[in-house]
Design a protein around this nucleic acid. Structure first.
Length: 470
RNA sequence: GGUGGGUUGGCCGAGAGGCGAGGCAACGGACUGCAAAUCCGUUUACACGGGUUCAAAUCCCGUACCCACCUCCA
């Protein structure tokens, strides 16, 4: 079984060919923690969480490293604006990011290094680059260190651009630069900046430029050559281009394959704080169940733009409910069934550049088949179908019976038990009334339960109930 | 100006030369006391204009529009 993934660098599907057989090392760019995560940010997390789950199911040992950029211009500005230390802003938003992982069932990365914790590694890398003639300290006394774009002939290879076609990099005043397209590896300390936002280097005090941290941290935790580098498509240039240039120029082969997820748009443009069209994860999960949001974000192919709409989100929630309904119904007949094997069409779909849409079509096919087995009361067949559906849902991270989702719904056990006793009592009364053809009483019981948010479903095995999510 | 990606039915969303992915919605039927859920069935497509081909949503050329990047961005 081979997995093929779209490689941004070569713009074609390539077979996954790990540096270490049986192991996959993935680096994907985390957030600049200048604000809480919106659903566009978390789309990336869901995409890479699904990739990880699929690789693990294929038997790979997966290491995931995702950085936290905890210092940059905006974080400093926020700190200033809010009258508190920049690191307090960064840390608060980092915690919000972790909460979003948790609420959407994204397993944390193997490690999440912070930029500010890796200054020595960055200094080392700059020294190497300067020695090799690919970087230089600005001679304008700014303390900035720049990468020399002209010294690296393959600069532009990732985004397929020629240096001459590029606009100048405005990350620093151009005075100290040899070429306006040179980018900052390191930013010298400025007078207005807090002292705590600077670290000593051979070139004076200063702070990390954005791009260098990823090169330094990927090398530290994944080695000089690793398998997959990922992130949002908007990071392809300049961020990933610069990472690639730095690392290669420093003599490291770097990532073998580049994966980029498409953006999530709202109102026709990329969800972004600067546009003001953001929807926070914490807000959206109040409107739809968290696994339904995850289903929505995972259901489109990762390289397709998602144009967010409330209607589409509601549709996804309905589709997910259909699957969840089957799982509930099935497990009531079979008793506990562990996830089994995914079906062949599902596996083929996932192996083909994570074709989740095709994989979901297969889930729905097995669900429909399973629903027929429920009607036929074929418990043995149902066990197989349920095991298979659970396995497939597990890959996508939306198995309603998984420890993660099962615990997060419907309150604690004792409350649930108490509620169950009451609901069962009402259902008994309803059954009795129905037997006596007293339908007015029977419907009243159903209405009462509905008003309380409890939905009942009549099955061949008697009525079943569930608490509606929202 | 440069580099990529896109435009599919009422809606979402796959596919990438021939056989109508899937979901949601709608309609009809089965089941039901009535519903809900479920099952069975039905309907509506490939931005526009040319071309290649026995055959084009799919390949080629052109046009329009949209998105992303070349500023911070998942």
């Amino acid at each position: 079984m081979t997995i093929r993934l779209h490689d941004t660098a070569t713009r074609q599907l390539r077979e996954l060919d790990p540096v270490i057989p049986g192991h996959v090392g993935i680096y994907h760019c985390g957030l600049t923690v200048q604000g809480p995560p919106h659903i566009g940010h978390i789309r990336k997390e869901v995409v890479f969480d699904v990739l990880r789950r699929w690789l693990e199911r294929a038997g790979y040992d997966v290491t995931i490293v995702a950085n936290v950029t905890d210092i940059d211009d905006k974080i400093l500005a926020k700190g200033e604006e809010q009258g508190r230390p920049w690191f307090a802003v960064a840390y608060e938003n980092e915690r919000a990011l972790h909460a979003a992982y948790e609420v959407l069932g994204c397993r944390p990365p193997t490690y999440e290094p912070r930029a500010t914790g890796h200054v020595p590694e960055m200094i080392e890398m700059m020294q190497t680059l300067i020695e090799k003639g690919h970087a230089y300290a600005a001679d304008d006394g700014s303390g900035d260190v720049y990468f020399d774009v002209r010294s690296w002939p393959s600069y532009g290879e990732l985004s397929n651009q020629k240096v001459d076609d590029m606009l100048p990099a405005p990350d620093a005043p151009p005075e100290g630069k040899r070429d306006p397209r040179d980018f900052a590896l390191w930013k010298g300390h400025k007078d207005g900046d807090p002292e705590s936002a600077s670290w000593p280097t051979p070139w004076g005090r200063g702070r990390p430029g954005w791009h260098l941290e990823c090169s330094a941290m990927a090398a530290k935790y994944l080695g000089h050559e690793f398998d997959i580098h990922g992130g949002g498509l908007d990071l392809r240039f300049p961020h990933h281009e610069n990472e690639l240039a730095q690392s290669r120029a420093a003599g490291q082969p770097f990532a073998r394959l580049w994966m980029h997820n498409a953006m999530l748009n709202l109102g026709g443009s990329k969800m972004a704080k600067s546009v003001g069209n953001t929807l926070m994860v914490s807000e959206v999960v109040k409107r739809v169940p968290a696994p339904a949001l995850r289903y929505y974000l995972a259901a489109a192919h990762y390289r397709s733009i998602i144009e967010f709409s409330e209607e589409a989100l509601a549709e996804a929630a309905t589709a997910y409910e259909r699957i969840e309904g089957f799982v509930r119904r099935a497990v009531a007949l079979t008793g506990p069934v562990e996830p089994g094997e995914v079906t062949l069409p599902f596996a083929h779909a996932m192996d083909d550049d994570l074709s989740v849409p095709a994989a979901l079509a297969e889930v729905h096919r097995v669900v429909a088949e399973g629903n027929r087995l429920v009607t036929e009361n074929d418990v043995e067949g149902l066990r197989l179908a349920l095991a298979s559906v659970r396995a497939m849902l597990d890959v996508l991270g939306v198995d309603p019976l998984s420890a993660h989702w099962a615990q997060s719904s419907g309150g604690d056990d004792r409350t649930h038990e108490a509620l169950g006793t009451l609901v069962e009592a009402l259902l008994e009364q309803r059954q009795e009334a129905r037997a006596n053809k007293d339908f007015a009483t029977a419907d009243r019981a159903r209405d009462q339960l509905a008003a309380a948010g409890v939905e009942i479903e009549d099955t061949a095995q008697g009525p079943r109930w569930k608490v509606l999510d929202n």
